[in-house]
Amino acid sequence: MTPNMTNEEKYALLEDFINQQENKSTSLIAILHYAQELFDYLPNDVQTFVAQKIGIPTARVYGVVSFYSFFTTKPRGKYKINICLGTACFVKGSDKIYNEFKKQLSVEDGEVTQDGLFSIHPVRCIGACGLAPVVMINEDVHGMLNAKEVAPIIKSYRDKEGM
């Protein structure tokens, strides 16, 4: 996320990125990744902008965005809590960790806490089965968790924000 930029600056960067692509329509997924990095999520206006700049129907962009779980059309928290529910993590009880996060933060999947700090996103296998059950909060990996560790982890991020 790039919080210090205005929307116009973000759109300008996005347009530059699109123009750099050799084959715009086959680069759709890369473009959407970049757009999500800039805007943090993919609201309808951004999807329409991408479609018009590439020259493909908006419905097709929406089709791709709604298919891949990585893309989100809702705003997310400053800290995105990705909880792995892949097979290995699930067997090791990641559902309990998932429920504990929801309880502690009083939010459901994809919702943002009122202070805008956290959002919860169940994901399928992040390729760290050796650390199961595993949770990623932005770029930080928290492995071999149990439910009791959830509250202190949340607190550590709140402390970091002085909240």
Binding site: N44, Q47, T48, A51, I56, P57, T58, A59, R60, V61, Y62, G63, S66, F67
Partner: peptide, 17 residues
């Protein structure tokens, strides 16, 4: 370009933007 396949799994359907 009105339609696209959207969503996935059981929810997948052909829909508008």
């Amino acid at each position: 370009g009105v339609y696209s396949a959207v969503d996935r799994g059981f929810d997948a359907v052909v829909n508008s933007a």
